[in-house]
Amino acid sequence: MAEAVHPRGTKPRRRLSGRNIMLYGTLLVFSLYYILPLWVMVMTSLKGMPEVRLGNIFAPPVEITFEPWVKAWAEACTGLNCDGLSRGFWNSVRILIPSVILSIIVASVNGYALVNWRFKGSDVFFTILIFGSFIPYQVMLYPIVILLREMGLYGTLWGLVVVHTIFGMPILTLLFRNYFSSIPEELFKAARVDGAGFWGIYFRIMLPMSLPIFVVALILQVTGIWNDFLFGVVYTKPDLYPMTVQLNNIVNSVQGVKEYNVNMAATLLTGLVPLIIYFVSGKLFVRGIAAGAVKG
């Protein structure tokens, strides 16, 4: 029989228990599952076409070439234009920046007013707003075409900005409302006794306390608007197509040889912006989501 150990101090932990093997094994399998497609894409995008034709999709490139990336960015043809994804990229940027700024400004003021300056029917207003997020986009597609046409915005960049702002409203307002309602009401009351008005309280009290939720809104909107395809293709014209639409046109073109390496590079390029945003602000994002979710 083993010598009886007299328990004292920190309890020893076994590293290689069956539990740990199961846990880390599962984690490993899942991470492989998610990383493999990315691996294939990156590798393929760095190969020349002859090497791609060999069909070893998991193998790293024998000869690394950035040719496909250059071609995807600057030379790939969509329709009559042969200046690659760069045109779509700049279109997307021009759509993204005003849409994100406008929608976040409007939604944050909405949320603030709904929490702190309740008016008759504010609950009804909020319910209707939230209800809007449950209606499928397709139902509203054509009516909005008519609306934009009547306003003279159809086919313009600003038309698309308006659409993005409106469709971001329900979820963003909900987000901001929940966050602001977690800020103690007494703070708001104290500011009123101190003589601050609607905008004074918004800018001087609420805004400085709300950085995390603004980051969350920023990420949601940047990824959502950047990844949007439907509105981009419906409400703009070919000159103004955002990057996603252009990517689709490059990848799905039926003329000539399928250039898998260029397609992969183009797809990676398109996904780069949301990826960067996630990596830069991931921590703030999680914190903000958690904060906004506390109160309903």
Binding site: E186, K189, A190, A191, V193, D194, G195, R204, M209
Partner: peptide, 27 residues
């Protein structure tokens, strides 16, 4: 409220967290 000539003290203190004490007093 600001026109009534009152000062108010709250249970949760309700200090503005991003301001210094001086900022709180002078707001």
């Amino acid at each position: 409220p600001s026109e009534r000539g009152i000062g108010m003290v709250f249970q949760s203190y309700a200090l503005y967290p991003q301001m210094t004490v001086r900022g709180n007093l002078s707001f």
